[in-house]
Structure formats: C-alpha cells, structure tokens
Design a protein around this nucleic acid. Structure first.
Length: 425
RNA sequence: GGAGAGAUGGCCGAGUGGUCUAAGGCGCACGCCUGGAGAGCGUGUUACGCUAACCCCGUACGUGGGUUCAAAUCCCACUCUCUCCGCCA
C-alpha cells in the first residue's frame, strides 16, 4: 500500500511510477478527488461531534446543579446535530471504502535503481556465474529424462489431477526431498535464517496483506466453504507473521526460511511451458523472508540474493542474475533480482528465484511496525526471495547432470542427502 | 458439530451512562542525578483530521447497527481469540 500522504504530496511522482510500470496513472486523480472530499467530510463531522459534546456537557452540568432544570432547548439542538452526524458518518464510510479500494490496487513505487522498460526484454543482466556445460551428445529435456527413468509420471498426474501436474517417483522423488533438506540446512546453518513450517491455507486478509489480493484473485485457489486460500508461496505466511505487531529495532533484521508447496492457477499462461514440470499448478519452494529497517533494506536485499545464489553455486549450476525493469516488476516490489539457471534443453536461462525488496508496501497493508532509536513508530521493510524453487532446481540438476546413457550424476553436495547414492538410477 | 468465556493504550489491567483518550502498574525513549552504572526523580509514549512543520485543538475503547440529549459502559448482529465436550490424521 502506498502512503496516502505521499500520494497527496507528490502525485506526479506516483503517476510517473504507475506509467513506467504499465499501470494506469489516472487512478491517482481519482484517489485525490475522493481524498479531498473525504477530508472535508471528516473535518465537518468532527466539528459537529465536538459541538454535540459541548452541549452534552452543558446538560450534565445543569442537571448536576439542579435536578429539575429545564434542558429541553439543549437536548433538542443536540438531537438535531446527532441526526446530521449519522448522515455524515454514512457518507464518510462510503468515501473511505471507495478510496481504500482504489489505493489498494496501486503497486509499489519502483526504486530509482530500477531500469526503465516495458517488458522482460528490458531487464538488465547483472552478472553470470559458471560456464554452461558443453555436451558431446544431444542433451534431453527433463521430461524425457524423467520418463525414461520411470521416475517422472505425467500421464498418471493428469489422469488423477489434470494438466500441469507431475508425479515424482523413486530416486527422483528422493532427489526432490534431498534438495529441500539441503536448501533448508544451508540457510539455517550457514545463513542464519530461522526455519518455519507454515500452514498452506490462509485467510483472505492474509492474501491482502502481502498484495496478492484484491488484484490477483483469479491466480489463487480458494476453498469453497470457509473461504480459505491455498498459498501461492510461503511468503504469504512469512511476510505476514508479524501483522499488527510492533517489533523492536534490536530484533531486526528477522530472517525466516520456510519450505512449502505452492499452488497457482496459472490463469492466462495457456500454451506457455506446457511440457514438463517448468510450470505446474503445485510445486515446492524454499522461501526466504526478512524484516528490516528502512535504512538497511537494500543492503539486506543484496545479502538475501547472495544467500539464494549460494545454493546454485554449491550445486555447481551455471546461472545469471537479472535486474528486472519497471515493466516486469511484481506488484509489491520496489526492486527485484531474478536468478536464472541454465537449462541445456532450452538453451536458455530460466527463473529459479525472484528476490525483492517490498520496502514498506506490505508493512502498511499488514500494519507491521517497529520502534526506532528515537522511540518513534515506523513501518518495517520486508524482503522476500526464493531460495530456491525446488521443482525448477530439480529440472536443472537433471538436465545439467545427465549422462549419455540417460543416468543422472548426483551433485556432490546432495550425495549425503541421497543415502550416498552417487548416480541415478 | 455442541456448550461457555472474552476482545480497552507498546504490554498487564481498572473502568457498568456524562468531568474517560481513558486510573494504577510494567516496558521503552529522553532529561536530571552519578566517576560510571543501578536506584531515584521528571517528561514523554496510538491513529486520523487541522498545519509547510511543530504546538494547540478536534475525533476515535474488535467491526457494524440500535437505545439515549449523551455509550468503553445498555441492547442486537458479525468477526476474531480462548476453554470444555464430540469427531479425527
């Protein structure tokens, strides 16, 4: 959520921010018009309430002095004011909810460091790590590798659940589990994150706080009675844990890591990545979230990104880091680095992590504050990033570590997590 | 699913119709005191509106509605939390 005061003070800045994000800048004028009206009504209604209070006090005083005093004059006047207050309050509530509805549709303001651009073609590559392997045979895509091993089953997945699902079996299933444990261990033991195990069902307001709602309702799965949402990422929970709380500066930064399944409808991605398990309705992810002070959040984002990168380095998977341009930035993000791993069958780098600084955007929606050194309340900054998307990392391991005979060499660091198996099958 | 209890400031907690934004305590921040720390003393400690900003001032006791001249306080509905029983991985 963007601060209404900021919108009031620098409307042109916000309009600019909206238009470079391919969003509608006219929303700002709508908001300002509503806000001006709203404030006028607040002032007017407050004045009426103050007047009524004075009258009430007069009545009380008169009655205290003389039980039988005639106060009907005051009483009548007060009654009339009361009716007006009631009408005003109704109108005010209306204006408030209208304004709120539009403000909650505004995305975060991009940081100055974000390159301008309309779409992903304007993203800027920041660095590369590792050399894509040169194959002396034709590398297979992961769906062929998995099916040939009889460890990846798309037919049964779609028979039971439909398209965009996958069933992992045998040692590929174990490899998947190995990746999860490995990632969690590195982040908790070496990077100082606290492991959290989260519910996969959350209330509507939790989806609002992190920015998934109201704009992206069609992306989420919802349960019919009870109105729960299946989390599209553990971020919903991690970045919402301290909702309506006041943290102390001493405990910042807070660092959490959670492994969870993620559920996404992938509405509007028809025809995209239809083969394999690159884009499925249910996948697993290890998610990193930090709560920081405003002063340190951008430095902490660099560290968080490095923490995620470390997983790829330890697995010796070649990747690159991309700075997203304004047009490609997510709803709540002020600055985002994507990590993209090399996939031989695609001859391309594909996203395995997205690390963002959401600044105070989520903190405002979720009312998450801290007391600074001057004892003042301030909104915290929240950051999040995948560390990493497990399914896509699994794909990267299969494709990059494949052998001519269709077997898969287990990356060194995963061997202890694979019951010492060094090669699949 | 059945029965009950509760929701007040950063926290605990008092307040059952007017002088209550709200006692008392704790925490925290700042100042005084001190060689330093502690103790002690003093001041402050939410949001919105008004303001260039500060002060002042006004409004606000889970949410919404009702009764009343007047509601934290009485009535109704809702939401959420907790306890017990039942069911259950």
């Amino acid at each position: 959520m963007i601060d209404i005061k900021k919108i009031r003070k620098e409307p042109d800045h916000i309009k600019e921010a909206l238009s470079i994000r391919n969003d509608n800048p006219d929303l700002v004028d709508q908001i300002l018009a509503l806000d001006a009206q709203r404030r006028e009504w607040v002032a007017q209604t407050d004045a009426l309430k103050a007047e009524r209070n004075t009258l009430s006090q007069l009545v009380a005083k008169q009655k205290a002095e003389n039980k039988s005093a005639d106060v009907s004059h005051w009483v009548e006047k007060s009654k009339a004011i009361g009716d007006q207050i009631k009408a005003n309050d109704e109108r005010l509530a209306q204006l408030e909810s209208q304004q709120q509805a539009i403000v909650s549709l505004l995305p975060n303001i991009p940081s100055d460091k974000v390159p301008r651009g309309t779409d992903e073609n304007h993203n800027v590559e920041v660095r590369r790590w590792g050399e894509p392997r040169v194959f002396d045979f034709e590398p297979l895509p992961h769906w062929d590798l998995g099916s040939n091993l009889n460890m990846m089953d798309f037919e049964r997945a779609s028979k039971l659940s439909g398209s965009r699902f996958v069933v992992l079996k045998d040692k590929v299933a174990t490899l998947n589990r190995a990746l999860i444990s490995f990632m969690l261990d590195v982040h908790t033991r070496e990077h100082g994150y606290v492991e959290v195990n989260v519910p996969h069902l959350v209330k509507r307001e939790s989806m609002f706080a992190t920015g998934q709602l109201p704009k992206f309702e069609q992306e989420a799965y919802r349960t019919d009675p009870d109105d729960f949402f299946l989390i599209p990422t553990a971020e919903i929970f991690l970045a919402g844990m301290h909702r309506d709380e006041i943290l102390s500066e001493k405990e910042l930064p807070l660092k959490y890591v959670a492994y969870s399944s993620c559920y996404r409808r992938e509405a509007g991605s028809y025809g995209k990545d239809v083969r394999g398990m690159i884009r499925v309705h249910q996948f697993e992810k290890v998610e990193l979230v930090k709560y920081t002070t405003p002063e340190t959040s951008f430095d902490e984002l660099e560290k968080l990104t490095a923490d995620a990168e470390r997983i790829l380095q330890l697995l010796e998977l070649p990747y690159r880091v991309v700075l997203l341009c304004t047009g490609d930035l997510g709803f709540g993000a002020a600055l985002t680095y994507d990590l993209e791993v090399w996939l031989p069958s695609y001859q391309k780098y594909r996203e395995v992590s997205s690390c963002s600084n959401d600044t105070d955007f989520q903190a405002r929606r979720g009312n998450m504050r801290y007391r600074n050194a001057q004892n003042k309340m301030e909104f915290v900054h929240t950051l999040n990033g995948s560390g990493l998307a497990v399914g896509r990392t699994l794909i990267a391991v299969l494709e990059n570590y494949q052998n001519p005979d269709g077997s898969i060499t287990v990356p060194k660091r995963l061997i202890p997590y694979m019951n010492s198996i060094e090669i699949i099958p």
